[in-house]
């Protein structure tokens, strides 16, 4: 078994580290690099507590080998706030009491930001489906759905104030303001697609 040297850019900071092939990304982040905001809740890849953004997409970091992420850009919960300002999803969770014990919350918020990037104006049902990959045992989800709605409103208001629409900002393809409910837009920001 050979160890591998890898580079991860986490929340804008480059890190070089040496890992065993079997080291899971979540353990590299937590144990090697100290990004302990990302939590581990299961080994069956169902609970979503470990969700981070890998090259801008929400993934379960317990189901990615650290070596697979070599060279990738990763965003964790620690990178959500900017310049001391909460991300609208963070504010939404606080304002709507979208968390209790907080353990699922980082993963839940990383999944929610991914959802909102794809669908800036989701219905409650779409939020529930969009968070299918994240389990919460405390809140009964209702205030999480409220939190994501709250964030969507906030981001929409912010975008309008900036003279744009979040959908435009996100994928340059649609307009959230005039689109039909349920019309899902798919961002083409996968980097390696096409």
């Amino acid at each position: 078994m050979t160890e591998h040297d890898i580079t991860l850019t986490v929340n804008g900071t480059d890190h070089e580290l040496t890992v065993e092939p079997r080291t899971l990304l979540v353990h590299a982040l937590r144990d090697e690099l100290g990004y302990t905001g990302t939590n581990v809740g299961c080994e069956s890849s169902l609970c979503g507590a470990c969700t981070v953004h890998l090259d801008d997409d929400a993934v379960k970091s317990c189901t990615v080998l650290a070596v697979q992420a070599d060279g990738a850009t990763i965003e964790t919960v620690e990178g959500l706030a900017e310049d001391g300002e909460f991300h609208p999803v963070q504010s939404g969770f606080q304002e709507e009491h979208g968390l209790q014990c907080g353990y699922c919350t980082p993963g839940m918020m990383m999944a929610a930001t991914d959802l909102l990037e794809e669908n800036p104006d989701p219905s409650r049902e779409e939020i529930r489906e969009g968070l299918e990959g994240n389990l919460c045992r405390c809140t009964g989800y209702q205030n999480i759905v409220n939190a994501v709605e709250n964030a969507a409103d906030e981001m929409h208001a912010g975008a309008v104030a900036d003279g744009g629409c979040p959908a435009d900002a996100a994928d340059g393809s649609g307009s959230c303001c005039g689109s039909d409910a349920g019309d899902v837009r798919w961002p083409e920001d996968g980097g390696e697609s096409e």
Partner: peptide, 21 residues
């Protein structure tokens, strides 16, 4: 009122047992 415990929990600052090194 909003909870005062939330800021640490929504930023990843909160320390759970496994976070202790």
């Amino acid at each position: 009122i909003e909870r005062r415990e939330d800021p640490a929990l929504i930023t990843g600052d909160a320390e759970y047992t496994d976070d202790i090194q």
